[in-house]
Amino acid sequence: MGFFTRRKVILTTGLVGAGALAAYAGQRLLGGFEELAAVPVFAKDGVAIRGTDPVAYFTQGRPVAGSPTHALEWNGAVWYFASAENRAAFEAEPERYAPQYGGFCAWAVAEKGKLYSTRPENWAIVDGKLYLNFNDDIQARWQEDIPGFIAKGDKRWPEVLSGG
């Protein structure tokens, strides 16, 4: 689908390779960010929001797993929905339900001007818009000044998306 992320590739063998892999995994578990390439929507394996139904955040007040049975392609990614009704609602008004900043980490867009992944469990709806964040720690940072981060993110988003 044309979506790529920058990935670190470790090409070693024996104990050196195992040690390097363990060190890299430790960095990831401790919350190390991986900067992603600029694309309109954060999609893992081409699927937006890791397969979570974006409409459910608004209708059920929580992340709900979507299904490939109720899939829709929009803005360069495949979106999954928990029901045909949610898919129809999204199709009628995708900008209403799609997460801000293409589903990339709202705090990172605002504070760093960078694109980082998100987890569906780290979310908030503010003024009728869905925002996602990288993890619990980043979500807590973002909540310290939501209006300020939104203002910064809105200003930075066009330049971040263009790779500028």
Rank of each mutant, 00 (worst) to 15 (best):
T118K: 08
I138Y: 14
A84C: 01
F81I: 01
K152S: 05
D154T: 15
E73K: 07
Y131E: 09
A65R: 10
A82R: 03
A82H: 06
N75D: 14
A140N: 02
W157C: 12
G148K: 00
N122P: 00
R96P: 00
A89N: 00
S117D: 15
D145M: 06
E159T: 12
L132K: 10
W74T: 01
D137N: 04
A77L: 01
T69I: 07
V126P: 07
R141W: 08
S83N: 00
P147I: 13
D137I: 10
K155P: 01
N122M: 12
W123G: 12
A89S: 03
W107R: 04
Q139W: 11
E91S: 15
F149A: 07
A89V: 00
D137Q: 14
R156D: 12
N86I: 03
L132I: 09
A124P: 01
P147Y: 10
A140C: 09
K155L: 13
S67P: 05
T69E: 15
Q100H: 04
K129W: 11
L132S: 03
A88C: 00
R141C: 09
Y97V: 02
K155V: 04
S83A: 02
A110K: 10
P147M: 06
A98D: 09
V126D: 12
E121C: 04
G102L: 04
I125G: 08
Y80E: 03
E111G: 03
A124S: 11
W123P: 05
G153V: 10
Y101F: 15
G148Y: 00
A108R: 08
A110H: 06
A77Y: 01
A92Y: 05
P94S: 06
V78G: 01
P94C: 11
A108G: 13
A106M: 11
H70W: 12
E95G: 01
V160I: 07
G102I: 05
R96F: 08
E73P: 03
S83E: 05
Q100S: 08
L72H: 11
A92R: 08
R119W: 00
K114R: 12
G113R: 05
N122S: 05
A140D: 13
L130R: 13
E121N: 07
E159Q: 06
W157S: 13
S117W: 12
L115S: 14
E159Y: 06
G153S: 15
E144Y: 01
W142I: 04
D154N: 11
N133C: 12
G113L: 09
Y116D: 06
I138K: 12
A77C: 02
R141Q: 10
D154L: 07
A108V: 10
S67E: 10
H70A: 09
I146F: 07
K155E: 15
K152A: 13
A106L: 15
A106S: 15
N122L: 07
Y80K: 00
I125H: 07
P94G: 07
W157P: 02
L161R: 05
W74M: 04
A71G: 14
